[in-house]
Design a protein around this nucleic acid. Structure first.
Length: 771
DNA sequence: GGAGGCCTCGGAAGG
DNA sequence: CGAGGCCTCC
């Protein structure tokens, strides 16, 4: 390992050797960033730094894992002691350790965004708010941005500006929703992803001794993809590094494509101001791409106003010019790509894995997929629904969660009636109401249902009681046996296994297989733990759940990695490289996205996205657009993207004339063209919806659900006879013309004045007897 | 209580 | 067009 410095160019070498003090490395695309990071850590250890004193933060598990593997290769098992992981996983670990200080149990649940959404949906509904205005996605991203900017509920309520924003977006209840959401999460012993950062901030700012402990421990801190950090992450890093200031951040402002989810590009642009005696090293030599690609990419990114100055260059061949293709339709475009891949494979003897097709939106994958399938070219689509987000997997995990954290309300709601066990919405609403009245958790009511006054009928009480006993049984063994034994037991006893096994549809079979796969994963986990020395070993279910809470699809390792063409969104392609890259759908309103057109800031992010796309290519890049494409079932006309015009012509190989349709000289957009006076996209969508009549008038709809008395009245058994005049909520007035069956199955036929004859079940037809 | 039809709405995505 | 939440109807 001693000659590792010889593998580096002068700037890379400086970045590795400059170990003391704040350092920012601006790493251009393809400039050997990962190499620098790994060698830097190796160098620290080589110099005698204790591996326990190093903290290395990344954004994805994949990046963390890869780096760990590479470092292990260089320095051996010593690498295992380094704290290396994503922001979320590292701070979740610390939070579990210090949980009691902020009032959380150490086995707190981590709510994923589906859990958060379900909770928010319920809160909005309970408050009887207009769901067209209080859209879950908007509310969620708003709360997320509060948290990522350390705006607690209290801070929100003291912040006139934010409140005004929400008021003018017709969402004056935002603060109340936020407050309820936070309270519910806390009651459930749950943190969402943003909490992992927010609570870490709370922890280190409220408890100086805790901060000092970790400051002293992490003498050397490295942060990868610094341009993607949000404010919350920025503050944590700053606090932890403030004792030793041996902080090395690596990033590329030109590749910042996550501002939309809160990343703050200012963190990288302001590094110099934040750390007085900081050094900045630029890695400008690109080892990946041809000259044409590098220069074309530079010519695009130069259109952005705000960036750190750097000159990315390459010593590689000039290479082919960038091809621009035009197609009549999305399918034509896909066929062109398909046949082009076929030709290239034949001519250059390229493998499938040398090709990537990149697009702006996932919906574009379908036509590409068809074109490849037609030619029998193996492909793999990346992205889509992650394994852990699949319904059947989440159902199983919900059982496991209930077994370890009984307060977890989202988990309870998910499984209380799945598989079907006859506990319906009415019962659940009554349990909810009782829990509210008694200030208990749902589980406390469920677990003791026989002694709770809920108004639930005896039959349902028995069913709920059975459910409670079932879960108690799971809880009892959760700490006694290892995760795999517990999970297998739960899969059988809960009825989940039976439920999925009985479904013989293709989807059902695949669900069953997914459940099996989950169990296999748990088995692997247990086996891995068993290989560890006894004092480090932890095969418990709760430890398993902590382990996977922060995993995502890409983290499930190497599923059949045959030779295939890769299809993915540009966002997913970040950090990857391919000899041949096709960037498709270069059309106005698609790329740049329609939603990014109204502000310069958004448009610049789209442009950086294009920069990322182009710089994935090593040998050849091909751009294409279609003149028409199906979007949501409609055929629409398309115009070529302004981004094509923005590339310096000398690097382009345009296969037809007249691509410029924007009225002459393509590069002459003025700033005012991009910028209209739309204050924010929140306001925008609210204004659009203003005409919608406000639903709040119909409050009773929701009240009824929560008020057992009202509900009971409707269900009261009534005696009907033929000839009676009755009124139905929806069908209006009618005369009973026939009665059939007895008790619960009694059916009533009614001849309604307005809608004619209907047959209804007596117990559900909410009839009022008129005469 | 629950199966199935209706309606709505749609960005990119890490943890 | 397609997925998923919601509502209806038995």
């Amino acid at each position: 390992m001693s000659d590792y410095l010889a593998h580096l160019n002068p700037s890379q070498r400086k970045a590795v050797e400059q170990t003391e003090g704040p350092l920012m490395v601006i790493a251009g695309a393809g400039s050997g960033k990962t190499r620098v990071l790994t060698y830097r850590i190796a160098h620290l250890l080589n110099k005698g730094v204790d591996s326990f004193n190093i903290l290395s933060l990344t954004f994805t598990n994949k990046a963390a894992r890869e780096m760990k593997e590479r470092i292990e290769k260089i320095i051996g098992p010593e690498a295992k002691n380094i704290w290396m992981g994503t922001f979320h996983s590292v701070f979740a670990k610390i939070l579990r350790f210090e949980a009691d200080k902020i009032g959380y149990p150490s086995n707190f649940t981590i709510y994923d965004s589906d859990d958060s959404k379900a909770l928010l949906r319920r809160i909005i509904k309970e408050m009887s708010l207009d769901t067209d205005i209080y859209k879950v996605n908007i509310v969620q991203s708003r709360i997320s941005s509060f948290k990522n900017n350390l705006i607690t509920v209290k801070a929100y309520n003291n912040n006139a500006e934010l409140k005004t924003q929400d008021d003018s977006a017709h969402r004056p209840q935002m603060g109340v929703i936020y407050e309820k959401y936070v309270t519910e999460c806390f009651k459930s012993g749950a943190m969402d992803f943003d909490d992992l950062l927010l609570k870490t901030n709370e922890l280190i700012f409220r408890f100086p001794d805790v901060l000092l402990k970790y400051q002293s421990r992490f003498k050397y801190i490295l942060v990868d993809e610094y341009q993607d950090t949000n404010h919350s992450q920025y503050l944590i890093v700053k606090a932890l590094a403030s004792k030793f200031e041996n902080l090395c951040v690596v990033g590329d402002d030109a590749q910042s494509i996550y501002a939309f989810r809160g990343a703050n590009i200012r963190n990288i642009l302001n590094f110099k101001k934040d750390y007085n005696d900081s050094k900045i090293i630029k890695l400008e030599q690109n080892y990946r791409s041809t000259q044409n690609i590098v220069k074309a990419a530079n010519s695009i990114i130069s259109k952005n106003t705000e960036q750190l100055e750097k000159k990315v260059w390459t010593a590689n061949d000039v290479g082919d010019k960038i091809k621009v293709n035009r197609a009549m339709s999305d399918n034509d475009e896909a066929n062109e790509v398909g046949s082009n891949i076929q030709e290239t494979k034949n001519r250059d003897q390229a493998l499938n894995e040398h090709f990537a097709i990149l697009y702006r939106t996932n919906a574009q994958s379908r036509s590409m997929e068809e074109a490849l399938r037609k030619r029998s070219i193996p492909y793999r689509i990346y992205g889509g629904l992650s394994f852990y987000q699949r319904r059947e997997v989440k159902d199983m995990l919900a059982y496991l969660r209930m077994a370890t954290n009984e307060k977890d309300e989202e988990a309870l709601r998910r499984i209380i009636n799945y598989p079907k066990r006859g506990i319906g919405n009415t019962s659940i609403d009554r349990i909810t109401l009782r829990a509210k009245e008694q200030n208990k958790t749902l589980w406390q009511v469920v677990a003791n249902i026989a002694n709770e006054t809920t108004g639930i009928n005896a039959g349902s009480v028995t069913k709920i009681d059975h459910f409670g006993v079932l879960i108690k049984g799971f809880q009892a063994i959760a700490n006694e046996q290892d995760a795999f034994e517990v999970a297998t037991y739960i899969a059988k006893q809960s009825g989940l296994f039976r439920e999925l096994q009985s479904d013989k549809t293709p989807e059902g079979i695949s669900k069953y297989e997914n459940l099996q796969e989950l169990l296999n994963g748990i088995k692997d986990f247990v086996e891995q733990e068993n290989q560890k020395p006894e004092e480090e070993r932890n095969t418990s279910l709760s430890f398993y759940l902590e382990d996977i809470a922060l995993l995502t699809d890409n983290d499930k390792q190497d599923e059949d990695d045959g030779d295939h063409v890769s299809l993915m969104t540009i966002h997913q392609s970040k950090g990857l490289e391919y000899p041949y890259v096709y960037i498709v759908g270069l059309e106005e309103n698609l790329f740049p996205s329609q939603m990014a057109m109204s502000s310069r800031v958004d448009l610049e992010e789209e442009r950086r996205l294009f920069y990322v796309a182009l710089t994935r290519a090593e040998k050849r890049a091909t751009l294409s657009y279609a003149l028409s494409r199906y979007r949501w079932g409609n055929l629409i006309d398309c115009e070529p993207s302004r981004f094509i015009d923005e590339i310096d012509e000398q690097y382009l190989d345009v296969n037809f004339l007249n691509i410029k349709t924007n009225g002459g000289s393509g590069t002459s957009f003025s700033k005012s063209n991009y910028k209209t006076n739309v204050p924010s996209r929140f306001n925008q969508s609210a204004q659009k919806k203003e005409k919608t009549p406000i639903k709040q008038v119909f409050i009773p709809k929701n009240l009824k659900k929560l008020n057992p008395n009202l509900q009971a009245r409707n269900y009261k058994e009534q005696t009907y006879s033929t000839g009676m005049k009755v009124e139905h909520e929806r069908f209006g007035i009618g005369i009973i013309c026939n009665l059939e069956g007895v008790g619960a199955n009694k059916k009533i036929s009614i001849n309604f004045t307005e809608v004619g004859e209907k047959t209804l079940l007596a117990k559900f037809a909410k009839l009022t007897i008129l005469s």
